[in-house]
């Protein structure tokens, strides 16, 4: 991993980037209710990754929003009783390659959960009663449960409440 500090004006420089495929992300020291609106490398969308071919300097622009969507809700089991679960909001399409595009919450024993700072877009919501951490980043694992996901569209600044059935 290569990093470059961000100045208070938002500028950064990362040197010595060898040829290869990369993802970029921002690290911050205070919780911030933000999401990546766009990330472009030399004008081309780089949110789901990009390739560095040689030593030519490259220019990146990252636009952040602070009006992400919010989602809360309840997890129910197949007998419609509240259930604890790991709730995962999984992005659709190529953003599945980007772990930071997922949102994860733990539903409490009465099944309640909250997710915030969600980038606008289309998602599927899953609630697993028992799941290994980050198993959902494995495309093969997700394919097994794809049909159990609850489709959700999130808009800028929107708030929604949902009920989702737990996957045992």
């Amino acid at each position: 991993v290569l990093s470059g500090s961000v100045t208070n004006n938002g500028f950064f420089t990362i040197s010595g980037v060898l040829p290869g495929n990369y993802l970029a992300w921002i690290e911050y020291h205070e919780p911030a209710n933000i999401y990546v609106k766009s990330m472009r490398l030399d004008g081309v969308d780089a949110r789901d990754g990009f390739r560095i071919e040689g030593p030519s300097p490259r220019q990146m622009e990252i636009v952040l929003g602070d009006a992400g969507g919010a989602l809360d809700g309840a997890v129910l089991n197949d007998k419609l009783a509240p259930s604890a679960a790991t709730v995962v909001l999984v992005p659709n399409g190529s953003l599945r390659r980007r772990s930071t595009a997922y949102k994860v919450a733990v539903a409490d024993p009465v099944g309640r959960f909250q997710l915030q700072a969600i980038a606008p877009g289309d998602y599927k919501l899953f609630a697993w009663v028992d799941v290994e951490a980050n198993a959902w980043l494995d495309a093969e694992f997700l394919r097994t449960y794809e049909e159990r996901g609850f489709p959700i569209s999130v808009g800028e600044g929107t708030k929604a409440s949902v009920r989702v059935t737990a996957i045992p």
């Binding site: 290569l2 470059g4 208070n8 950064f12 990362i14 970029a24 921002i26 300097p57 220019q59 602070d66």
Partner: peptide, 26 residues
């Protein structure tokens, strides 16, 4: 290697002081 430079842009300038770094990984 290449140099990747750029800028983080946000409507809320207060957010900029919370960022530590931009990172690249494979």
């Amino acid at each position: 290697g290449a140099e990747v430079s750029g800028r983080v842009i946000t409507d809320n300038p207060d957010l900029l002081t919370r960022f530590d770094s931009v990172s690249l990984g494979g």
